[in-house]
Simulated assay, not measured.
Amino acid sequence: MIESLDSARMAAWRAYIEASQRLSTQLEEDLRADSGLSFADYHVLVLLSEAPGQRLRMGDLASRLVFSPSRLTYQISTMSRRGLVARQSCAEDGRGSEAVLTAAGLLTLREAAPHHLASVRHHLMDDLDDAEIACLTRVFTRLGNRLRAARDASTTTRQE
């Protein structure tokens, strides 16, 4: 049987769940109101804008977004219809495909970014001091690395 959480850990867990859901919802609402983009749209545009040649293999993009291949295919298809990204065959490997940022996608990102940054600052960052920022960075970097490693290990085990 799994041991239950003590009261401090339960309070931390509930505070995290409720606040993270409220924060995600608020950031998404602000992003949609300011730019018409979903948070997933915005994240795809950011990742592609930072990638060499503003393109990423679909598998790499899915991994970075923590999306299933089918969810990414749907996401890229909807964004492609809006002219924000294109899907192209991979130059190095014709079997694979890449998501590529379009000029319209880059312009959309540049227009949305200042509003999104203002929302992130207002709803999260401006309320935290330097020690809290450092603590959050440590905690979520460690957690992200652990979860990524566990996922990679389980994917490797399934493939064998």
Rank of each mutant, 00 (worst) to 15 (best):
G59H: 09
H115L: 01
Q75C: 10
A99T: 05
H43M: 12
R151T: 14
L124V: 11
L56P: 03
R81M: 08
T25E: 15
S89P: 06
A8E: 12
E3R: 07
D93T: 07
V66S: 11
T108V: 07
Q75L: 15
D41V: 04
A91Y: 11
L147H: 09
H115Q: 08
R138F: 10
D30H: 12
S35V: 06
G53N: 06
H115T: 04
M125T: 10
R81G: 06
N145I: 11
S70P: 03
T141C: 13
E132V: 09
L45P: 02
R64H: 15
E111W: 04
F67S: 11
G36R: 09
M79S: 06
E50A: 09
L107T: 14
D30A: 14
L47I: 05
S97R: 11
A134H: 12
V120I: 06
T25P: 01
D60E: 15
H115N: 04
A8G: 03
D41H: 10
M10P: 00
A86Y: 04
R55Y: 06
G96K: 08
Q26R: 14
S68N: 03
L48K: 01
Q75E: 14
E111T: 08
S154N: 12
R71K: 14
L84S: 02
I76E: 02
V85E: 05
G144I: 12
A131N: 14
S63I: 07
D126L: 08
L147I: 11
G94M: 06
R87T: 11
V100G: 09
V100N: 07
A150Q: 15
C135I: 07
L5S: 01
S77Q: 13
M1T: 06
G83P: 08
F39R: 12
C90R: 06
L65T: 07
A103P: 07
G144F: 10
I17F: 00
S38Y: 06
A33K: 11
N145Q: 15
A112D: 01
R121N: 09
A150L: 15
D41N: 06
S154A: 15
W13S: 03
R14A: 02
C90Y: 08
R57P: 10
